[in-house]
Design a protein around this nucleic acid. Structure first.
Lengths: 180, 180
DNA sequence: ACCTGAACACCGTTCAAGT
DNA sequence: ACCTGAACACCGTTCAAGT
């Protein structure tokens, strides 16, 4: 029963049952412990969810100089697709500002190296993060509806295409704004 | 007690107390009725929230030919800013696919008129919708934290700037991809 | 230091029964 | 047709009390 152990248990629940069933009581059950016990390690559920988000984002490769913005965005999507409902979870944690591991840190540096002012670099990467999160939320919601059977036709290829088109737009836009 | 009456009551709760406190029991209380009564008019909470989302999006001006993509995106943001937590609510309804009034319908037509293939036009506008929703969710989350007092410094001007920069990137990207 | 037991104030949803 | 009463199976969180 450590912080890391609780986060691992939460990740297990998330993958098996989804974000809607990720309750403090269920996590505690998986650990063979009382729900109240978790509150000795985490102040509240939001903080715990932020730690889970950080653990998910830790799977992203550190952004070295050789990486392109597009490559970083694809990497972010890949990492989010490795856990059920990860995009929605990370989006929520990011919104309340409890994520310590902000996903755009590396990309901001790349843009700054290209001569962008720091504030604009952060805003530009944020725009891409919004797109990636929104797109993967859509993908994973469809995956859930498909698993329950209310939806048919998998068509993961269409998701891929939609992502690549949007990403191409964003990257072109970044270059256009930088040039202008 | 009609569908419209329930939606109005829900909008009132939303503006006063926020999405977290928008429960079936609270809506019923505001109407002087039992929570179970709502289930005669709506199948479940998700369906009701989708109706609320539609009511919010109804405030958006219909997209005529003269409107630019940027103008449409700004209009979408303005409409979302008229109700507390509207962006998060609409994003959720949109994700589960229960919104009848999809916000991108008008913009898709504009792109098709410019010669885009229908599928790509939908994907391009979806990318912009993801950005707008993500950005306004961020803005409204900050507004909430500010209201509770855990955050200081209003700085709504920075939000405006961030939105305009991202939008400029997206619109440039749309043109670049269309040209290439 | 770390966890249990038990409670508090809530949830969404169902369903017989009323009118 | 439309609503009530009462229940079911849950929530997040707190806190005295145990070890």
């Amino acid at each position: 029963m450590s912080k890391a152990g609780i986060v691992d248990a939460a990740l297990g629940i998330l993958d098996q049952y989804g974000l809607a069933d990720l309750s403090m009581r269920r996590i505690a059950d998986a650990l063979g412990v009382q729900a109240a016990a978790i509150y000795w390690h985490f102040a509240n559920k939001q903080t715990l969810l932020a730690a889970v988000s950080d653990a998910i984002l830790a799977g992203q490769a550190p952004c070295d100089e050789s990486m392109s913005i597009a490559g970083w965005a694809r990497d972010l999507r890949e990492v989010l697709l490795t856990h059920r409902d990860a995009a929605e979870l990370v989006a929520a944690s990011l919104a309340v500002g409890l994520c310590t591991r902000v996903p755009d840190a590396g990309a901001v540096e790349v843009l700054e190296a290209e001569g962008w002012p720091p504030d604009d670099a952060r805003r530009a990467t944020r725009a891409i993060v919004h797109f990636v999160l929104g797109h993967v939320i859509q993908e994973q919601t469809r995956q859930n509806l498909l698993a329950v059977g209310v939806l048919t036709s998998p068509t993961p290829a269409l998701d891929e295409d939609g992502f690549e088109l949007g990403l191409r737009m964003l990257v072109s836009g970044v270059q256009a704004v930088a040039a202008g």
